[in-house]
Design a protein around this nucleic acid. Structure first.
Length: 1005
RNA sequence: ACCUGGGUGGCGGAAUUGGUAGACGCGCUGGACUUAAAAUCCAGUUUCCCGCAACGGAAGUACGGGUUCAACUCCCGUCCCGGGUACCA
């Protein structure tokens, strides 16, 4: 009876489906455990061997926890909305719903092949109306909420309206427009439109104008984390900045809590670091400088209207930076004022110039007549430069405005410059430049010949800036002699006392752009209009919102279903495809759709209660399942999905819809499986009549040498049948070849000829009779022909082997190139394991005899190690422990049920199919998954003696078997009597003998 | 540039708290079984030196220093590779 894995696996997969073996109940007496995978985007390419790595790890852990007596939730679903399906629809004319459905079928088939214990009854599909109904519902709650900074939590917007009615907004300044101030009376006097505009500045999901990342090729806006190096993450198309009306999530209000929350969760330090950097919290001060422009008389104070002006909608965070400009703190009546943000107010006496962003609104007001033309030219130049150019070549550019700021402490005049190195979107869009302490300021000063003031003495060498905080200040008036670190607080206090500066915290993170001009996403449950006083523009849909009010759909109308379209092109004014749907625009529905991360921001909650039609997830279900205990996925979602879903969780917690405010208790990042590409080397000949000729790797390696030329010439003459053929210069091109037709590095030349029609008559120049390919590790991608499909491996070796091999490859967290060559070893292991029960010739060999001490010792040792390793996600060593166990039992010729039964249980998380089969074959009822995990009986593991390594001066020289309870003195006597030790002592007495019980013995000579 | 993870045999990797470096597997070499092959089993396999062999010796975890009875592990400096961020004041 042999190990027929394909039959066994088919049998048990059917059995599991038929019996609902993995159905999970919300109602058991067992403790809960929630194991979650990042659900996949069902792409057309299907799974390659890299995808299941995390799923296998979580599956093993889920099964292990079930054996340990937990009620384990281990669900799976699909993140089905998104750009690629729409792009595919544009290219092939297939509706996204159709292609997505096909892809899901393929994914499901591939997943089922591997034998996961997912509860498919709980599957979620983000593009299903029954799911996105609740995505829309949560969006509405965000829309109807604001963030109360006093209580530090989200509150219903009605509360805010009540506050405005009684006390205006003095206690709650607008996060969208900090200068906005009004009293209760003023509020009462505003018309409906004005009130809605103001409320929009508070809502957690809001609509506003902002500079966004616009990708022309994709025809949509992208979030910051979807833009890599100035090009789109998907497709690598150029991205420019564009002002557009957009929906945003006010994630910046949660910045602090997102940071604090990191302390309560078990993520890797690297992951925490990434999120912390992305949020980018910094402490410092805003300082206001008076501005003088020589030759500009009668500079006026700020128009009071400026402080109550309300923009259309709110501003996107990216232009919020200019908010502070022009306002000089309270009570200052400077002609013009420039506010900067700095983390180093201690360097105030080292300020040699100021720099404002080219987009800064103060520029036109302060520029001197002489400099006006130069400034305008510079601004034109900056506008002409795309984001990409700015990143590619970091030139030092800038222009003097002709205006000066007055240092509030020294009274000195400081020239104000404009430069593109200062970003409008961060801080106040203006900085005070301290060249002796900041590298960028230093380079700028050097480039434009601006004199540099040294305030840090010897710490500054005149050749480069030194950002130290440890120097004692010099040339700094009242700060002289004070260490910079301490001077920061002193300066801030002084600034605040004088009313020209405030302590200020800044974040790098911006509010998240939450709309896309696309079709395949959740429609916004928002209607524009409803304002009796201002008519809705006739066809200006791109401008919708400008002259109208965003009205949320009644929750009873959800889901607002995505209408069917035939064309996916943009609308008449650059809006999304929904603008072409007559019934849609007739209702004045929002034409944008939600971005890809909307559905994935809360899916882990839906799994808990997937069929509930009353709520997104009942409080009872979310209280029972609580946090995800183990979340496994890739690092690529570090700053996108992970931050958004953490924010949504906090929001739902604030509003009382769930009882926990961090979604994931523990996060494990699986590494990437890289592809191992193979190359062939094609000879490029002018004479195109010869068949394609390929050189083996070793021959290519000597390219350029005379031998190479001779060899190739000879071979080509032979192939062409022309002994006089002259080749001229020989050149080679390197081509990717499908890894699946290469065995190790040796090309299957017959398969290669079949691979491409053009290679059907290919000729090869071999080395030692073989064609050897070049090798390189690259990202696994279809384009590079280095993808390996799990289906083929599962067919050849079985799912159990495949699962174990993926784990055996190395630590889950580590990235590693895929290599199939070791899979035989794992397969051999499973067969060896099978032979403990059944022999190919003899049949049944397992018995019910009583186990020996040695056998029990082996099995308990194995259980202990496998358990420890599984517990700490060290699955590769877990597999190794099981191998050692089986090797030892084989050596002991142990075929006893008493022992083997335990082996089956601890092996089943790794190799579920074969274990179910064996469990049944040795006469057990039911599933091995319902068996209890065996307890380690320590008494079999206790040793009375140990083989101690004996080291001389730390270098191991011999071994001695010594009783574990030996005393120092006994050990010394035994050791000194040993021949090897005597040899090393050469008759001398040892200086010292170190005896670490149960570890080692070291003799110091 | 900054932050971050890493660098161990021919290969993937192990060494969990400073305590026998190279577990386990692949590959390779030799052998057994077989007419033969597959499968299986046994032995060997870090490098170098001596030797028929046993035994023995030296070096060895990217590189250079240090702490320690003892360092892959801790500290300082250098190099290389992967990931993240990228003018964030």
């Amino acid at each position: 009876m042999e190990y027929n894995f394909s039959e066994i696996e088919k049998k048990w997969q059917q059995h599991w489906t038929k019996n609902g073996s993995y159905k999970v109940s919300n109602d058991t007496g067992k403790p809960k455990f929630y194991v979650l995978d990042m659900f996949p985007y069902p792409s057309g390419a299907g799974l390659h061997v890299g995808h299941p790595l995390g799923y296998i790890a979580s599956d093993i852990y889920a099964r292990y926890k079930r054996l340990k007596g937990f009620n384990v939730l281990h669900p799976m679903g699909y993140d089905a909305f998104g750009l690629p399906a729409e792009q595919y629809a544009i290219d092939h004319g297939i509706h996204p719903a159709v292609s997505t459905g096909d892809n899901i079928k393929n994914f499901r088939r591939q997943l089922d092949n591997i034998g996961f214990c997912f509860d498919w009854d709980r599957q979620v599909l983000t593009s299903e109306p029954s799911y996105y109904k609740w995505t829309q519902w949560i969006f509405l709650q965000l829309f109807k909420s604001w963030y109360d900074r006093k209580q530090n939590k989200a509150m219903p917007i009605e509360e805010l309206v009540r506050l405005f009615e009684t006390e205006g907004n003095k206690a709650h300044p607008s996060p969208g427009d900090p200068r906005l101030r009004f009293t209760a009376e003023e509020w009462a006097a505003f018309d409906r439109r004005r009130k809605e505009d103001i409320l929009m500045n508070y809502r957690l999901a809001y609509c506003g104008y902002g500079e966004v990342n616009w990708c022309e090729a994709l025809g949509t806006v992208l979030a910051n984390d979807e833009v890599i190096n100035g090009v789109s993450e998907r497709g690598g198309h150029p991205v420019i900045k564009k002002k557009l009306r957009q929906w945003y999530l006010r994630i910046t209000d949660y910045a602090d809590r997102l940071l604090q929350g990191l302390e309560t969760v078990d993520f890797s330090d690297a992951m925490k670091e990434m999120q912390t950097n992305w949020i980018g919290k910094s402490f410092g001060a805003e300082i206001t400088f008076e501005v003088r422009t020589p030759g500009v008389p009668g500079q006026t104070t700020l128009a009071p209207a400026d402080s109550t002006r309300i923009g259309a909608g709110s501003r996107g965070k990216s232009d919020a930076g200019t908010a502070g400009a022009g306002e000089a703190g309270e009570g200052t009546a400077a002609p013009h004022a420039l506010t900067v943000y700095t983390t180093r107010p201690d360097t105030i006496f080292g300020v040699d110039f100021m720099v404002v962003a080219p987009e800064h609104e103060l520029i036109e007001k302060i520029v001197s007549p002489e400099q006006r033309q130069a400034v305008e030219e510079y601004i034109t130049y900056v506008k002409s430069r795309s984001e990409r150019e700015r990143m590619a070549e970091k030139k030092i550019t800038g222009c003097f405005t002709g205006a000066y700021a007055i240092n509030p402490f020294s009274g000195l005049q400081i020239p104000i410059w404009i430069s593109e190195y200062v970003l409008a979107g961060y801080g106040t869009g203006a900085i005070m430049a301290v060249p002796c302490g900041d590298e960028r300021d230093f380079k700028f000063a050097q480039h434009f010949g601006i004199p540099i003031t040294n305030i840090i003495g010897d710490f500054y060498n005149g050749k480069e800036a030194n950002p130290t905080k440890e120097a004692k200040l010099q040339n700094s008036d009242f700060l002289d002699g004070i260490v910079m670190r301490d001077a920061i607080v002193i300066v801030i206090n002084k600034l605040e006392k004088r009313g020209i500066g405030v302590r200020k915290v800044n974040y790098r993170m911006r509010d998240a752009a939450f709309s896309r001009q696309r079709y395949w996403g959740e429609p916004f449950p928002i209607v524009w209009g409803g304002d009796e006083q201002s008519e809705v523009p006739e066809r200006g849909r791109a401008q919708l919102g400008h002259g109208s009010i965003a009205i949320p759909l009644d929750e009873k109308e959800l889901p607002l279903e995505l209408p069917h379209v035939e064309k996916y092109g943009p609308g008449p004014e650059g809006e999304g495809p929904l603008a072409n749907v007559a019934s849609w625009t007739a209702r004045h529905l929002e034409t944008n759709t939600m971005p890809g991360y909307a559905g994935s921001s809360w899916y882990f909650l839906r799994y808990m209660d997937p069929h509930n039609e009353e709520v997104f997830c009942s409080r009872q279900a979310s209280d029972y399942w609580g946090q995800v205990d183990l979340y496994i996925g890739g690092t690529e979602h570090a700053v996108g999905h992970l931050l958004y879903s953490r924010m949504w969780t906090k929001f739902l917690f604030d509003r009382g819809f769930i009882g926990h405010d961090e979604p994931y208790k523990r996060l494990v990042n699986q590494g990437m499986i890289q592809g191992s590409s193979r190359f062939v080397y094609r000879l490029e000949l002018k004479d195109s009549t010869t068949p394609p000729i390929f050189l083996s790797y070793g021959i290519r390696a000597i390219e350029g040498t005379p031998e190479f030329h001779e060899l190739v010439t000879l071979a080509v003459r032979n192939i062409a049948g022309d002994p006089a053929l002259e080749l001229g210069t020989i050149s080679l091109s390197q081509l990717h070849v499908d890894v699946n037709i290469v065995d190790g590095v040796e090309l299957d030349t017959a398969a290669f000829k079949k691979w491409r029609a053009e290679y059907a008559n290919a000729e090869f120049i071999l080395e030692e009779g073989k064609y050897i390919c070049g090798v390189e590790v690259e990202k696994m991608s279809k384009r590079l022909y280095n993808t390996v499909n799990p289906d083929d491996l599962v067919n050849k070796y079985g799912a159990d082997t495949f699962r174990m091999y993926e784990m055996f490859l190395g630590p889950v967290e580590q990235s590693k190139p895929w290599d199939t060559k070791g899979i035989e070893g794992v397969h051999r292991f499973l067969r060896k394991c099978w032979r403990l029960f059944f022999d190919e010739n003899k049949g049944k060999v397992w018995t019910t005899e009583k186990a020996t001490e040695a056998e029990l010792k082996t099995i308990y040792k194995t259980i202990k190690k496998a358990e420890e390793d599984t517990e700490r996600f060290s699955f590769n060593t877990g597999v190794s422990a099981l191998m050692i166990g089986v090797n030892e039992l084989t050596e002991l010729k142990c075929h006893k049920k008493e022992v083997l039964e335990k082996l089956i249980i601890i092996l089943t998380p790794y190799a579920p199919h074969v274990c179910e089969e064996l469990w049944q074959l040795i006469g057990n009822e039911g599933s091995v998954l319902d068996a209890p995990y065996p307890k380690v009986e320590e008494k079999y593991l206790v040793e009375s003696a140990k083989n101690y390594p004996i080291a001389i001066n730390g270098k191991t020289r011999t071994e001695m078997n010594i009783a574990l309870d030996a005393t120092q003195q006994q050990v010394e006597e035994l050791v000194l009597a040993d021949d090897v030790v005597k040899k090393w002592l050469e008759g001398n007495a040892p200086k010292k003998i170190i005896y670490v019980k149960n570890k080692m013995i070291n003799v110091v000579v």
